[in-house]
Design a protein around this nucleic acid. Structure first.
Lengths: 166, 166
DNA sequence: CGAAGCTGGTTCGAATTCGAACGATCCTAT
DNA sequence: ATAGGATCGTTCGAATTCGAACCAGCTTCG
């Protein structure tokens, strides 16, 4: 096997290490946050994310599809979680006047309150684990990295060529 | 509400944006890879990860627990996936001589072959989406970032104080 | 030796996610 | 106006994940 062969078929060891570590770190972060949120506040990270998006929106309301896009999940999963949140009284469904297909999901006062209870827990976690140790240069760099990754994904999704690779 | 109050209760908008984008990008990456892998090679990303770890190990074999640690998932999930992979003939269970509780999971020739078929697909994806656009400085920086995040998580896990946050 | 505790792996039930299929509504172009 | 196609949200079944409980084997320490 030639060096070029190797290059094309496997990642360079150092590069491979970065990718592996990336996967591990993201998974660990997710688990850690999820557990803390569930133990201390009885909601999932996805549920928390939904509440945050709603709180940040005009009228504290959003459409199901937009919600699905923002939190990057299947529409059916949003339906499921909105049902849960609705049962908990943290969220309400409303008809949409402009579009009779659509439904608005609106944060209730109870939902806002629950969010405000949970936020410090999560935010301190994000700060301590993720952001506190970053200097200005680093966080700027991180921002740029996220930008390129995001652009690459856009590109790939715009170009849905699932070309067979051999 | 004072500025300090705001600071302690919410993230600065720019910082919040970085965190949000981080979550979105990681989820999008996972989905993208998972879909490609399933469509083209009929295995999950977790299953692929298991095969990779085994292939990289001495004897092409690992213990269940170590596998769980490496891919950052519950032990029961590993049991589940090893069952699937075993049904597909890509992996075999063996008794462990040193420890009668333990089981070795060993990659079969068919497993290695399947991995080698799937690898180019994934690796080109990782390159195109994740690594190609990074210059040396950036990938060094990323490596450092992953290091601090990983250390922070170690710290937090060593210190399992689920202190109530209000 | 032997009891108490720890570790490795499995099993079980509950929760969540996904994608495909569906009915309803909207949009566009003729 | 209207037919064809896109979009919205839901429902359904299958797959996966998690944590708790459990058993068996290991380890430590009296």
């Amino acid at each position: 096997m030639s060096a070029g062969d190797f290059e094309s078929r496997w990642l360079r060891p150092d590069v491979n290490a970065v990718w592996t570590r990336f996967l591990q770190v993201t998974h660990r972060l997710e688990h850690h946050i999820d557990r803390r949120l569930q133990d201390n506040h009885g909601i999932t990270h996805t549920q928390y994310e939904i509440l945050v998006r709603l709180a940040d929106s005009d009228e504290r309301a959003m459409r199901m599809s937009d919600l699905a896009d923002e939190i990057v999940t299947a529409k059916s999963a949003v339906t499921y979680q909105v049902n849960r949140l609705s049962e908990m009284g943290l969220v309400e469904r409303h008809k949409c006047d402009r579009d009779n297909r659509g439904t608005w999901v609106k944060l209730t006062p109870a939902g806002l309150e629950r969010l405000e209870q949970a936020a410090p827990c999560i935010l301190s976690l994000v700060r301590e684990l993720f952001l506190d140790d970053l200097n200005c240069d680093q966080s700027a760099e991180l921002d740029k990295l996220l930008g390129t990754w995001s652009d690459n994904l856009d590109e790939h999704e715009r170009n849905p060529v699932h070309r067979p690779d051999h």
